[in-house]
């Protein structure tokens, strides 16, 4: 199997459901890296990420008959993995909500921007310094759980709005709202970070 530009071989759902091991190996081959990365991003810990990775494919293997084929297989795997990751988080912090929990505790008013500093004018090399990029990672990590997962699926893993909404079992509108919140919150953290570099030169009054 070549990874150089050629398309990955298509997976036959029929064969998967018939218990074809080679097809299952193909499914693992094509998706395990993304699942591991997603779990690592959500959990921030390699051991936990590996547990989620294994559990995701064990469950996929066990429940392939339940997969209805309406979404992509990769979306379905992301969904299993996200739920597994959230279960682990809930064990650590009992107040974490399931992705299936549709009660929107976060749909009150949007936090208004507090910081108005025009760091958009900063030169590219300063903006993209490795220190800044490391800070961006930290700021993502610090987002509230459901905003963080939404953000990772959409912006880091590059899922479409529809796919990310399917993974989280929420509407596309709710997905967009969460993404918007996550971005505004990140903007706020980054503004705090860049503020020092302007030394009190605050724009807009």
């Amino acid at each position: 199997m070549s990874q150089n530009g050629s398309k990955p071989p298509p997976i036959s759902l029929e064969a998967l459901k018939a218990g074809d091991k080679a097809q299952f190996a193909l499914l693992v081959e094509q998706n395990s890296n993304q699942i591991y990365r997603l779990a690592l991003r959500i959990l921030g810990n390699e051991q936990d990420a590996e547990d989620v990775l294994q559990e995701t494919f064990i469950k996929a293997f066990r429940h392939i008959q339940d997969f209805d084929g309406r979404s992509r297989l990769s979306t379905w795997l992301y969904r299993i993995a996200t739920n597994e990751a959230l279960m682990l988080l809930r064990k650590r912090k009992p107040d974490t909500l399931s992705v299936d929990d549709t009660t929107e505790t976060d749909d009150g008013e949007l936090t208004e921007p507090v910081q108005i500093v025009d760091w958009a004018q900063l030169p590219e090399d300063e903006l993209l310094s490795s220190e800044t990029l490391a800070y961006v990672d930290q700021a993502i990590e610090a987002l509230p759980e459901r905003l963080k997962i939404t953000f990772i699926l959409r912006e880091v893993e590059g899922l479409s709005t529809l796919e990310a909404a399917e993974v989280l079992n929420i509407s596309e509108a709710a997905l967009k709202t969460r993404l918007s919140r996550a971005r505004l919150q990140l903007r706020e953290s980054l503004t705090e970070y860049f503020e020092g570099r302007f030394e009190g030169k605050v724009y807009g009054t």
């Binding site: 025009d118 760091w119 004018q121 971005r183 980054l190």
Partner: peptide, 11 residues
């Protein structure tokens, strides 16, 4: 402007 830059930075 800064929101646009935020998205750009993350990417």
């Amino acid at each position: 402007d800064t929101l646009r830059r935020t998205v750009y930075l993350v990417r």
